[in-house]
Simulated scan of single mutants.
Amino acid sequence: MAKLYFKYGCMNSSKSANLLMIKYNYEEQGFRVVLLKPSLDDREGKSVIKSRIGIEAKCNLVNPESSIYNCYDADKTDVLMIDEAQFLTEKQVDELYNISFNIPVICFGLLTDFSQHLFEGSKRLIELAESIHEIKTVCQCGARANYNGRFDGEGNLITSGEQIVIGGNEKYKALCKKCYEGMRKQSLVKRRRQ
């Protein structure tokens, strides 16, 4: 059904794997699927969506200044799927909303950043998507993870700084509220002692 979908989850919740499995299912039924991802997602350094479990597919890159309309061929697309949708601009999400009148548009991404704030793309998707679904994952303690922790090279939780860091050496981990807050307090105490 033609509508705008947003499937979100914390780090390591298998968002890309879900996207690739849904793509496979559509293609098995004869649908022409086009994959997009923002160029800000430079983990792979190329035009590919890759899951940590080892599956991957080629995609088209979307630059922050690009129009979504210029990133795919509407006449040859039955389904449009976007990975890392949190990195989209508000204008690009508005374009996806308009595209979703004609074909299904399925977006996958993070909801909030390491400091518990919405990303621009995610905020607009929450405002416009007709279907919003959480892809759940667990914290290291076994509880449901709701937050994305960013850690420096020494394992300290980072709670301030740039929302998007390109080429940094930070590591990310999905955390529950209790673990996130406990690590935040430990990091504050450690900084005060230094």
Rank of each mutant, 00 (worst) to 15 (best):
S100C: 09
K7C: 02
N70F: 05
A17Y: 12
V34L: 14
R52Y: 10
D42M: 14
E154Y: 11
L118M: 12
K123Q: 00
L80N: 05
S131V: 13
E127I: 08
I68E: 02
K185N: 04
E27W: 11
R192P: 00
A145C: 10
L96E: 15
K76Y: 12
D83R: 04
V165S: 04
G9E: 01
L61I: 09
L36N: 15
F119V: 00
E65A: 12
K23T: 07
E84R: 01
I82H: 01
S187A: 15
L128V: 08
M1C: 06
I164G: 09
V34P: 00
Y5Q: 12
I55E: 15
F87E: 04
D41S: 05
I103W: 09
R184N: 05
K23A: 03
Q194T: 13
I132H: 12
D73N: 09
T112I: 08
R150Q: 03
V34G: 06
L118I: 02
Y97T: 03
K15R: 05
A143Q: 09
I106T: 00
T159P: 05
Y24H: 10
Q29P: 00
S39G: 00
C179W: 06
V93C: 01
F87C: 07
N146T: 13
E154I: 03
L96D: 10
K3R: 10
L20K: 01
S16N: 01
C59D: 13
K173G: 03
K50E: 07
G153Q: 09
N70G: 02
K178Y: 08
S131N: 07
A174W: 13
R32G: 03
K177F: 11
K185S: 04
K58S: 11
G30R: 12
N63E: 14
S160N: 10
G121W: 02
V189L: 09
A85R: 00
A129H: 15
S115T: 02
K46H: 07
I135Q: 11
G168M: 07
M11W: 09
Y172M: 07
C139N: 10
C59E: 13
V189F: 06
R144H: 14
M21C: 08
Y24Q: 06
R191E: 15
S39W: 00
T89H: 00
F114T: 03
N63W: 07
I132A: 08
A17N: 06
I164M: 09
C176F: 07
C176G: 10
Q29F: 06
I126A: 02
